[in-house]
Design a protein around this nucleic acid. Sequence first.
DNA 1: AATGAATGAGAATTCATTCAT
DNA 2: TATGAATGAATTCTCATTCAT
Lengths: 213, 213, 213, 213
Amino acid sequence: MAELADPVQAQLIAARRAQILDAATQVFAERGFARATIRDIAQTAGVADGTIYNYFANKTDLLFGLLDRLNDTERRPSSLALAEDTSLAAFFQAYLRERVEALWSNAELLRAVLPELLANPELRGRYYRDVIAPTMALGEDAFRALAAEGRMRDLDVALTTRILAGAVLGLMTMQLLGDVTLAERWREIPEALSALLLPGLLREPTPASSSDA
Amino acid sequence: MAELADPVQAQLIAARRAQILDAATQVFAERGFARATIRDIAQTAGVADGTIYNYFANKTDLLFGLLDRLNDTERRPSSLALAEDTSLAAFFQAYLRERVEALWSNAELLRAVLPELLANPELRGRYYRDVIAPTMALGEDAFRALAAEGRMRDLDVALTTRILAGAVLGLMTMQLLGDVTLAERWREIPEALSALLLPGLLREPTPASSSDA
Amino acid sequence: MAELADPVQAQLIAARRAQILDAATQVFAERGFARATIRDIAQTAGVADGTIYNYFANKTDLLFGLLDRLNDTERRPSSLALAEDTSLAAFFQAYLRERVEALWSNAELLRAVLPELLANPELRGRYYRDVIAPTMALGEDAFRALAAEGRMRDLDVALTTRILAGAVLGLMTMQLLGDVTLAERWREIPEALSALLLPGLLREPTPASSSDA
Amino acid sequence: MAELADPVQAQLIAARRAQILDAATQVFAERGFARATIRDIAQTAGVADGTIYNYFANKTDLLFGLLDRLNDTERRPSSLALAEDTSLAAFFQAYLRERVEALWSNAELLRAVLPELLANPELRGRYYRDVIAPTMALGEDAFRALAAEGRMRDLDVALTTRILAGAVLGLMTMQLLGDVTLAERWREIPEALSALLLPGLLREPTPASSSDA
DNA sequence: AATGAATGAGAATTCATTCAT
DNA sequence: TATGAATGAATTCTCATTCAT
């Protein structure tokens, strides 16, 4: 039945799926997962209630669809590795900029998904296993490497990784809780974070302490 | 007719209320607000369904009850002001310790309340207005005072305040998402945060950089 | 246990009963039987919920209490019998006046009781048997007697009785439905009814047709 | 998407609506509005509980649906105007016949609706405004016209209108209260009413008083 | 007798999901 | 595939009634 090789058909299906997920994002973000109804989503997507079940097994499956979108975003550490020759300070700023950009450009998706991620043990476990744990491991490895090269102060790698990740996540969370300052000035966050964290992170003279020389 | 001031009666009522709120905390934390049923909570509390409605107007009112408990916790900045003569470093560590302690000792309460706080616009607005905004304002004032005394680097007060608060909130959030490291080692968080943040925060030689001399 | 002979006690009990029935009348009239709650009534009466159950077996029993009050009113045909010598016209006006007065002075009671009387088969049957049927029988007898004396036109006794009773009941019903004219001018009803009905009722020259003489 | 004008679909929907209203009439009439449950009605209609909510917003809305049916009936004064040349007596009989027929053929509907109409202030107000008040106004106008033509005795127009309407309503009410005589002989009511009322209503010799000549 | 907290049966309503068209 | 009417399980909430104090 499925014309496996029909690329037009496949494209149409993908488009319809995306259309439904867009609607789900919007409605979940506005009302929360539990208060959102399939009818809300169907109307927002401009399809009939039943149509959604041709693309997703059930309401929770819609959430999994959103999670996948989020994972795709999160799992792209982009240019994490180019740090070799760059100054560590520049690298960090670039990295933070990339992380902040990634979170903030998905603010609506996060608003749709994060509350349920926190509230639903099953979802939470899956997400932690698939996304957070690997990310933390990567971060720890990176810090360990830097420490081995002597470019970093002697900090606890696991906690430091989590503090960095947590700071960004926490700022996003505060915005989701309604903080307008963060919503308006989020582009300054990477720089502010760098200014605050780099002195405590790097062993060698930092921009902030360079006057010591 | 009713002895308005009957202290025994009042105590019984307060105890029953607390008993129900305890149950609500547990059930909301386990299953999330929406999936929790009044029956769950009643059974956990060991009362009949109807009894809950003698103490709370509806399910949402239970959540407000939990929020009030959280507010009571949050609104005690305890020894924020004793900083005058102490070393800034010591003060910060003490402050962070207090904040972390406050959040972590209410981890279950947060797990019960935070997801709904993020998902429910009305609740969120109320909480932001009543708790977060005032807290941010207090923090900014404190930073501004320190800056005026020349004891702090020249940082953006609003963002720095939010980074500090966000870092702690973010770490809590990561634990709520399932991070075991943070759950096990949360007592080390204040120190790790101090080590990471103080160098970037303080103008004068900090413990961490004093060896430079 | 019951001090059967204690008149003070008995008086107190009767007073409390009346107080509760007064409250029930008011609350049933305002909200209807089903929407009225025991709590409403208790508060209106100034007693505790439980107290009501010391005087009435259950909520329906309160209604029976009101019905009894109504019956007491209805079953007093007062001076129906004085007709012997009076002019029939004067008698009818007096009778109508008495009936209208009886209904209208119990308008609140009727508002409390009539809807439920119409809606509840059991109650309705009981009331019809105890009050309406006997009243109709009395009325038919009276008409039959008048007819035998040749003082009345040759009308169907059963229907005429019901038309008279129905007219008064219907006017009350229309007032209960919100008609302000009837509420304001109810004192004129007996006269208007007489003017309209007597010519059709009486064989001999009536006040309305007295110009014939 | 939905074929807005699909007549088959529309017919099906109207039929289902009618089916539910029929069931509601029956159940409300049997048990009264408050004691009737949605489940009762759904089972009587042969549909699922939820289906009812696809056609009516809530239980009260069902009652509104019944009221609309009643209004449709009530608002058809059919041949009120043909009186011009007919004898007034004939006209009155015709009118009464029509009114009685209208009420009695909707006895079940009235039994379903009238108690709640009396008990529920909001409903009552709406019904009085939409139906009774306009009807009374019409009746008063008609009487006033007749009076102007000198064909009627000099009676109070407002009260007379209400007495006529009230008599019919009251007779219906007495039947609803359980009077078997009225249930069995309702077809004789118009004639009996005419016999009783016309002499008092008309200025000129009526059939009933023709023997005067 | 009076109180009012506790109870739990019962009802309205919602909404994810199914399925005939 | 798309539709949307029908379904009925599940949930919140109300309130008459009980009973220990």
